[in-house]
Design a protein around this nucleic acid. Sequence first.
DNA 1: TTGACATATATAGATTATCTATATAAAATG
DNA 2: CATTTTATATAGATAATCTATATATGTCAA
Lengths: 117, 117
Amino acid sequence: MVIDRSLLTGSTTTLILKLLEEGDMYGYQMIEVLAERSDDTFQLRAGTLYPILHGLEKDGMLESYEWKEEGERARKYYHLTVKGKKLLEKKTAEWEEYTRAVNKVLRRRKEYETVQR
Amino acid sequence: MVIDRSLLTGSTTTLILKLLEEGDMYGYQMIEVLAERSDDTFQLRAGTLYPILHGLEKDGMLESYEWKEEGERARKYYHLTVKGKKLLEKKTAEWEEYTRAVNKVLRRRKEYETVQR
DNA sequence: TTGACATATATAGATTATCTATATAAAATG
DNA sequence: CATTTTATATAGATAATCTATATATGTCAA
């Protein structure tokens, strides 16, 4: 199923921070890993990702470094800072509250229907 | 907790359609009911709601009518059409898939962490 | 070995769903 | 009678995506 892009808004940054909590990654890798873990629900665009990474680095949430693996081309790796970890915690809590609230509305049973005025 | 507004994107229309599934409502009432049911997580702005209602009506998802209750002022009520009901079903399914995918990423245990390259 | 495709990063400009601010008017409240 | 709340409406700003485009390296098949 193709989900509406607009739903992504606001959670993309959280997802990126979460990936980096597990270990340093480079941009293109994040796109691949995110697609794989979400069963292709998230097909993050390069044009979306890179500006977000630049912004997060500018705000001190991430730090980047060039690294060239043996027999691989050089890539730009990103590392989650302590500040970034705190942002991840905050955003995860927001996500939980947000989904709880939406589900409370959406999963309301028709039996509890208010009387029509 | 004040959740980031950007998270709302994409789900507002679904929430509105859901309210109308239970019975006809007028705009201002939707704002109140949504706040109440979400424990004030959703404080939908009038300036957000009314343009959405106009758009949904233009697209045939809703129908509106003026109605004056005994001893009340006249209000503009909205009714969910069959087309609107189908949209609600589609959007609810999208919501389920989207949250499932986000949670799959966010709730990944650190124990399953990939080896750092 | 060359041309096409995949990998990898980057940015400008468009799109879209919110927001704020503002307007109007009726009804309630003090 | 003045202020606040209820109720609807729209213009313009903001913000997070998107598409399109650019550049360069590495891989693979013809």
